[in-house]
Amino acid sequence: MKICVLVKEVPDAAVQKRIDPSTGRMDRNGEKNLNPYDTHAIEAAMQIREGGAVEVDEIVAVTMGPSTAIRALHKAVSLGADRSVHLSDDALAGSDVAATGYALAQTLKRESPDLVLLGQQSDDGECYTIGAVVADHLQMPSLTQVIQMDVEAGPPTQLRCERQAEYGYDTVQVELPAVISVGDAINEPRYPSLKAIMGAKKKPLDALAIGDVDIAADRVGESGSKVICGDFKAPPAKSAGEIIEDEDTNETVEKIVAWLDERKLI
């Protein structure tokens, strides 16, 4: 079984994110890191391998991004991926979600994975959608926001997944191949060992351009994207909440009950 994990380089969590008004794109000049949600996807792949229900031959980290994105791939490899694939091409700059999903799907076709894993959202765009777009192009079933995954050896190999929805939890049985995006509740990513960090640059890395994976130039990049960004506004400021100091717990409870009662919430 081959697992491909889609990873993305995003602005580091400590960096204040801002939109560059001249381009309408996110300012990515600051510190960058591997998308934290993707580390859970890599860990999920590692746990499938170590679980022993199926034999995992290879875990491949795949990204699309500029040259700096190699760092995200090195990190993915230090966390357990066997090798990585870097799709990078000037023609891809400015791709929206649909264009990115198409480009990634073309890249994944070359690998013929049995399972594609990714973090449910990126720490920058927060779209939650790339998995579904990729799955559509690959004609595979797609599951999102998965927080538990159990392998049932086949044939056919199936995954029993629990996904976290707004209304509760869904349990879904899915036959592979499939594209699954995972939430951060699915696992606790392991620490990379120092040896893995030191060895990351020695693991194979395929550098690909759009011509290598039959990506049509007019379907990617700024010109191939249909989303038009503009007129950005900061979210409206929230009104200050009311703080009830807990000096006397009985009184505090009374105050909370009265507050809820006033608003007909209880």
């Binding site: 230090s78 990379p192 120092l194 960090i197």
Partner: peptide
């Protein structure tokens, strides 16, 4: 962090975590 090599950054991040 740009003063550091990739490995140094990752090792620092591991120790910090």
């Amino acid at each position: 962090l740009h003063e550091l090599s990739d490995e140094q950054r990752e090792i620092r991040e591991l120790a910090a975590r």
